[in-house]
Design a protein around this nucleic acid. Structure first.
Lengths: 173, 173
DNA sequence: ACCTGAACACCGTTCAAGT
DNA sequence: ACCTGAACACCGTTCAAGT
């Protein structure tokens, strides 16, 4: 096996690592993402990963970024604005664990903290676009908080949608 | 120094460890809580801690329990029901980081998961008691979600209270 | 009952050295 | 430019052995 792979494009090697990280995040969660494990899996020395990603957090962010991109790329079916909002909530629920892990890590890493803020801003844009026009900022903030909070709860999908519907009607409807 | 301290009551020794854990949680967060560090601090072998707490998570839960107990023991000043709710939100904001850490760890440990559910149930009782009587379950769930969600946001205390006030009026007022 | 010492299997990160 | 090997300083957990 080649020690240095000058034949393989840099992007392909970066992609290989991010893909391995993505896979680990999706089954074991953030705790399952370790530089050592990925290096083992890819047959690399640990230090090789650090050539492309200066810290574990850089790799973590890159992998979460890819996952979020994929999840949000799915197009919603047409429907009422409430349907659209509920669809967004279902998507967010899929990445809820990762968002929690992001928050936890953000306390220690400014890199992760900045990314977390970006994600939050993006979700806000998504929600505002989904809502009917003319909703005041207070209502948006309150409804956004309700969305994030309801994902935190241990409710089933059915119950979650009921609560969201109520919030929608009373806060922005 | 005595190797085994039969003179010191078991409770006192447990208390010493939990207290050290509490201090570490309060400044460095959950990431700063390690069995190794506490043993070093107390001049014990690491294995000594395991005599009282079978896993790191047991110690973690015990320390968070103590912190929560202290925070919630503080008595609110009299005021409107909204004032009371805002007071609860301020208390919860103080332990927000710990709650996140709890959630993160709950994925890996059923012990932590169970404790997290207990905390959630306790907070719900606290909120229901603070709210005016006769609020429907949907309203409570929605407002509770809003409370937890608004603590997740990067809002200042001022803004947080505005959003909570709006949610209170439209969801349970 | 209580505690030590030492081990085991993990981490993230760094760095000199090689190609 | 790219990668290895080895080290360093951490973890949580276990266990035989001592008092």
């Amino acid at each position: 096996m080649p020690r240095t792979r000058h034949d393989v494009a840099r992007d392909a090697k970066v992609d290989e690592i991010v893909e391995a990280a993505r896979a680990r995040l999706l089954d074991g969660g953030a705790a399952h993402l370790s530089v050592a494990a990925i290096a083992r899996e890819l047959g690399l020395a640990q230090a090789a990963v650090y050539w492309y990603f200066p810290t574990r957090d850089h790799l973590f962010v890159a992998a979460v970024e890819r996952i979020l991109h994929d999840v949000l790329a799915r197009k919603p079916r047409a429907g009422t604005t409430l349907d659209h909002v509920l669809w967004i909530a279902d998507r967010l629920d899929e990445v809820q664990d990762l968002r929690m892990a992001l928050r936890e890590r953000a306390k220690a890493s400014e890199l992760v903290a900045a990314f977390d803020r970006d994600v939050h801003a993006l979700l806000r844009v998504l929600l505002v676009n989904a809502l009917p026009p003319g909703v005041d900022d207070d209502g948006v903030d309150a409804f956004m908080a309700l969305c994030e909070g309801v994902l935190l709860q241990h409710l089933g999908r059915r119950r979650r949608r009921e609560v969201l519907r109520l919030g929608y009607e009373r806060l922005v409807g």
